[in-house]
């Protein structure tokens, strides 16, 4: 076993890359759940985004157009969920699970002719001067634009939720949809917009996998990333920065265990493979257990069907 082959600098740099798809999906789902909707279809929306982004990027040769297409694809798929749950009042859990299955099937159908192709390369933003700083440079300033976009999105979501009127209305809808309705807010419209935002974010996360992290298209390539994103939202107590922490922690342990496997650590591979899941959940549980008010953290109307009967 040779631990010296693991470079801390490269490890942290690849951690950010590994965490980005989950972070994107989780921050979108956070908004959805803050509006009181439980969309379990994250996995399906991610993989649909992955193939939409991949196909369009290959056809146009532009990764940027690919990412836009991925967001559109994810949002479109989430709209099916939105219409079913908000207008037709279907059960959110069942509909979300169905969406995941549908997304997995749809993406393999769409992706049949794209297996084995290489997508156009997304360039790293070689930020001059800053990226030349030793150690910090390669860690922080030598990534593709989506890594920074995801980080900016976390900050924007936090600001939007806590500092704007729209964010306040969104939280109010998620807390008590009857009271929000009585005060004259459009519960269903707010929720549909939130669902579409969540779908777009999940789509971006999926495209990040197929266009940058892997980068190629294989069936079922999200491999549970959507479920991890869902778990991180819950264990992160619906707080944007805790979701960021959870995603980076998961990414970090994933990269570390891959490196350890490569270094030939004398632990069965199965244990190493399960470690990211165990450690992320354990850390987030311990963190949220400390605060007595976690029960207040979950949006009170989460998963409940709203019908304006008055």
């Amino acid at each position: 076993m040779d631990l010296s082959s693991i470079s801390p600098t490269l490890l942290i740099a690849s951690l950010m890359v590994a965490a980005t798809p989950i972070l994107l999906a989780a921050i979108g789902e956070l908004i959805v759940e803050k509006a009181g909707v439980l969309n379990l279809g994250v996995e399906g929306m991610m993989i649909t985004g992955a193939i939409c982004g991949f196909a369009i990027a290959v056809e146009t040769g532009s990764p940027v157009i690919g990412f836009i297409a991925a967001a559109a694809g994810g949002a479109l798929l989430s709209l099916i969920f939105g219409v079913l749950t908000q207008y037709l009042l279907s059960n959110q859990v069942a509909t979300g699970l169905a969406l995941t299955l549908f997304g997995l099937g749809l993406s393999s159908l769409m992706g049949q002719s794209y297996v084995g192709i290489k997508p156009p390369q997304t360039n790293k933003l070689d930020i001059p001067v800053l990226s030349d700083i030793p150690v910090l440079g390669p860690i922080l300033f030598n990534h593709d634009i989506m890594v920074y976009f995801a980080l900016a999105l976390v900050v924007l979501v936090w600001l939007g939720l806590n500092r704007t009127r729209a964010g306040l209305v969104l939280r109010a809808v998620g807390e008590n949809h009857d009271a929000a309705h009585a005060l004259g807010y459009k519960v269903i419209r707010v929720r549909l917009l939130a669902i579409m935002f969540g779908g777009a974010c999940a789509g971006l996360g999926g495209a990040y996998l197929s266009l940058i992290r892997v980068p190629q298209w294989t069936e079922g390539m999200t491999a549970g990333a959507g479920w991890i994103a869902l778990a991180i939202v819950v264990f992160g107590a619906w707080r944007p920065f805790r979701v960021l922490l959870g995603a980076y922690l998961f990414g970090g342990v994933t990269v570390l265990q891959l490196n350890l496997q490569a270094a030939g650590l004398a632990i069965p591979v199965e244990y190493l493979s399960m470690s990211p899941y165990l450690i992320t959940i354990a850390v987030l549980v311990v963190m949220s257990a400390k605060r007595g008010r976690t029960s207040l953290a979950a949006p009170a109307s989460l998963g409940r069907i709203f019908h304006a009967s008055q």
């Binding site: 009127r165 306040l168 939280r171 109010a172 008590n176 009271a179 005060l183 807010y185 953290a297 009170a300």
Partner: peptide
């Protein structure tokens, strides 16, 4: 009462106003 338990007092009051001032 038609209040939101997880929101603070000022947020609850702002939600019941047509044109609330800055927080």
């Amino acid at each position: 009462f038609s209040l939101f338990e997880a929101l603070d007092v000022a947020e609850n009051i702002a939600l019941g106003m047509e044109n609330p001032p800055a927080m």
